[in-house]
């Protein structure tokens, strides 16, 4: 509330005509006395803004940091004390050693990675092909195909959970990683996103390529792909995060603990080896750190894709 109050007191319109507002705009991140650039806060407002930002930052990352600290704390250190400590007194990697001994974390991570990479690859290939056809080519029945893709967006995966499992079982893929991977291999939303991106390619360019004698494959490789790479990276990132974080479907498909993916493995660890929370914390860090690093590396691409109005919802 203080933020709002300080801001309100300074947002009165400028009354001095001798100093045109346009000349007062500077590159400072805050607004000076006579400036009317409303998109910039005042100095006091800026400080308040950073204050709120830091508080929100604490709320958003505290659980992760606390979990990280817990995973590094020794057996003698109290992990539940208040106020919580984020720096272990005697950092140790024992918990990580312990979790690797208790459950096959590396196998689980490998399984998650396989499913994730497979999902990204198949979605990229098939969504680009399908998106190109739907976005840039004309053919009979296109409207029907589009309608089919759109209608599946209304259908939550949870609704078809039971019969999806029956399908996968009848294919002989129950309790296999193929069974985990297969239903998500081509997402309708990804095809539609790629179609939207392909629609943005100027048709002149494609026509010129046809005149130059480029076949479908060459057009895809040299014209379509460079044009839709931005969208493709968003699709890839979401496909990977979705596959890596998915819990319900692998939980239903996999029954053998040796075949678990990381998420199911973490739940298994936390419900069956609850005695030592430090060890569980170490396990969750193994699941968390790769995805955070991946996102941190690709976040520029991601937010640019979002700004282009391509949020997946």
């Amino acid at each position: 509330m203080t933020l709002i109050r300080t801001r309100r007191s300074t947002t009165t319109p400028p009354t001095d005509p001798a100093r045109p507002a346009a000349l007062r705009r500077t590159d400072r991140p805050y607004r000076g006395g006579g400036s009317v650039d409303l998109m910039k806060p005042t100095l006091g407002g800026l400080v308040g803004k950073y204050g709120v930002l830091v508080v929100m930052l604490a709320v958003m990352v505290f659980p992760f940091l606390w979990q990280l600290a817990t995973s590094l704390k020794g057996a003698t250190e109290n992990i539940y004390e208040f106020p919580p400590t984020l720096v272990p007194q005697a950092p140790t990697l024992d918990n990580y050693r312990e979790v690797f001994r208790t459950i096959p974390v590396l196998d689980y991570a490998w399984h998650s990675l396989l499913v994730g990479v497979g999902t990204v690859a198949s979605n990229l290939v098939f969504a680009t092909l399908g998106g190109y056809a739907l976005g840039a080519l004309r053919f009979r029945g296109k409207g029907i195909v589009m309608a089919v893709f759109f209608s599946t967006l209304l259908l939550p995966g949870e609704v078809t959970l039971t019969s999806q499992y029956l399908t996968v079982k009848s294919l002989g893929l129950a309790n296999t990683l193929w069974g985990v991977f297969l239903p998500g291999a081509v997402g309708a939303i990804n095809v539609l996103l790629m179609a939207a991106a392909c629609r943005m390619i100027p048709s002149d360019t494609l026509d010129a390529a046809i005149i130059d004698g480029a076949n479908t494959w060459q057009r895809l490789r040299h014209i379509v792909w460079p044009n839709v790479r931005g969208m493709a990276s968003v699709v890839a990132l979401f496909a990977f995060i979705g596959a890596w974080d998915d819990f319900l479907w692998p939980l239903v498909v996999l029954s053998d603990p040796a075949k678990y993916t990381l998420t199911v493995g973490m739940q298994y660890l936390s419900s069956n080896f609850a005695a030592n929370p430090r060890v569980i914390a170490a396990g969750t860090m193994v699941a968390l750190i790769p995805i955070i690093v991946l996102f941190a590396v690709l976040q520029k691409q991601f937010f640019r894709g979002v700004e282009e109005g391509s949020v997946k919802g």
């Binding site: 399908g130 195909v145 089919v148 609704v159 081509v186 095809v191 479908t216």
Partner: peptide, 26 residues
């Protein structure tokens, strides 16, 4: 003429096999 159909085929197969068919089955 069949190029566009070939290109959308995988997507359509998946939508039928892993969304519409399970739904009808449900």
């Amino acid at each position: 003429w069949y190029t566009p159909y070939l290109l959308v085929l995988p997507g359509v197969v998946w939508v039928f096999g892993f969304a519409l068919w399970p739904f009808l089955n449900t």
